[in-house]
Design a protein around this nucleic acid. Structure first.
Lengths: 212, 212
DNA sequence: GACTGTGAAGCCATTCACAGCT
DNA sequence: AGCTGTGAATGGCTTCACAGTC
């Protein structure tokens, strides 16, 4: 696999292409061009071709890409051709939403443990998942070979949870808490900010209505 | 307000700076340097200064920035010094989480209407908000002067909801559905993808463990 | 001495444009 | 004729480095 210096933006788009290809495949579409993919996901066609070219030559000149093949390639590149068990810490509203979010399952992810420190929640169930206390984290990680943890707790608790995840050997953290986390370089970290984009909208609307 | 071609990335970071400054202010911190902000949010100090410089000269050389003042400036720049009523379409798990998400309220946003097309949900309440049918969207938008709509429905329903929002005069849409939306240029659009970052993690982990 | 503000340099990503294949 | 793959050109964002200010 040729993987030299791929822009992070490319990876992000690849994930979007991949989902779009799944939709096409479900609809029974056999062949697709870079122009069609571009329209479907909202980028330029040259961008689509360049992104894919980082990983190989998947298309046929004059024809386009085979939907099913390209879908499988993208899935393989993203590493989701194998299962990824996840743990989720934080059984508040956001945690609940994430633990029942179908988008994760559709892409082959499965949450194998939900963890919270609230005694009122521990022992209760979300769907068919029991809520465990923080002390069980190590167990769950070992039992299911978990490598990725999701943080959906409050600002204040997030760093503490992250530390615990690192201590228990997780290799990657997806952080939904609105705060920057401090973790070692050898642990992968991604941050999803629920409200940053909302403020981009208000910025743009305010600018637009500004009368000079 | 000097506002010449500000990179979108700058706006996004500004939102993060702003939240960080609120935290500092709550702690009673009076002055902060670009280095400290940079550490707190995970970017470089030159980046912080450059970002702020798009909007004016807020600091004092040799000293740093006044926390409270800079906080207020960022809030003003982002346009959230005034209230923004929001409507939310989709009362599923994600919609529920968003409608009760404290992060929005903390930043001055308030959801004034929750809308769903499921007859079983209509009339029920989320917190103190009633769930209304789609037909009520126009009413709610007019009554509360809503300009921004949030989409938290499934892939299939998202475009239809977006069309309805545009038809009812909304000026901006925040889309949490995992699909690209087609809307006119004069409507602002931002997309939050819940699972793209998760696949960035699996990509990086897969790459790391690839043994050549 | 400390720290901001900023032109210049460097770097990275996107877009162009066309050769090459079907 | 249609569409991919890609070197070259462009554009934009980030980082550097230092003059300017307190």
């Amino acid at each position: 696999m040729r993987t030299l210096r791929v822009p992070e933006a490319t990876i992000n788009r690849l994930s979007v292409y991949s989902r779009f290809l799944e939709q096409l495949n479900r609809k029974g579409v056999v062949t697709v061009s870079s122009v069609e993919i571009a329209k479907g996901v909202g980028v330029g066609p040259a961008q689509v071709r360049k992104d894919l070219a980082y990983f190989g030559e998947f298309g046929t000149r004059g024809v386009g890409y085979n939907v099913k093949d390209l879908m499988r390639y993208t899935i393989k590149i993203l590493g989701i051709d194998k299962p990824w068990p996840l743990i989720l810490v934080g059984a508040g509203n956001l945690g609940f939403a994430l633990s029942t979010y179908k988008g994760f399952n559709q892409r082959g992810f499965s949450i194998v443990g939900v963890i919270d420190n609230d005694p009122n929640k521990i022992g209760k169930k979300i769907g068919n998942l029991e809520i465990f206390p923080l002390e069980k984290m190590a167990d769950i990680i070992k039992r299911h070979n978990v490598r990725i943890g999701i943080i959906a707790v409050t600002q204040n608790a997030a760093q503490e949870v992250a530390d615990l995840m690192v201590k228990n050997g997780l290799q990657a953290i997806l952080n939904y808490a609105p705060v920057a986390l401090n973790i070692p370089d050898n642990v992968e970290l991604q941050h999803v900010d629920m409200s940053v984009k909302l403020e981009t909208l208000t910025f743009n609307l305010s600018k637009k209505n500004y009368r000079p």
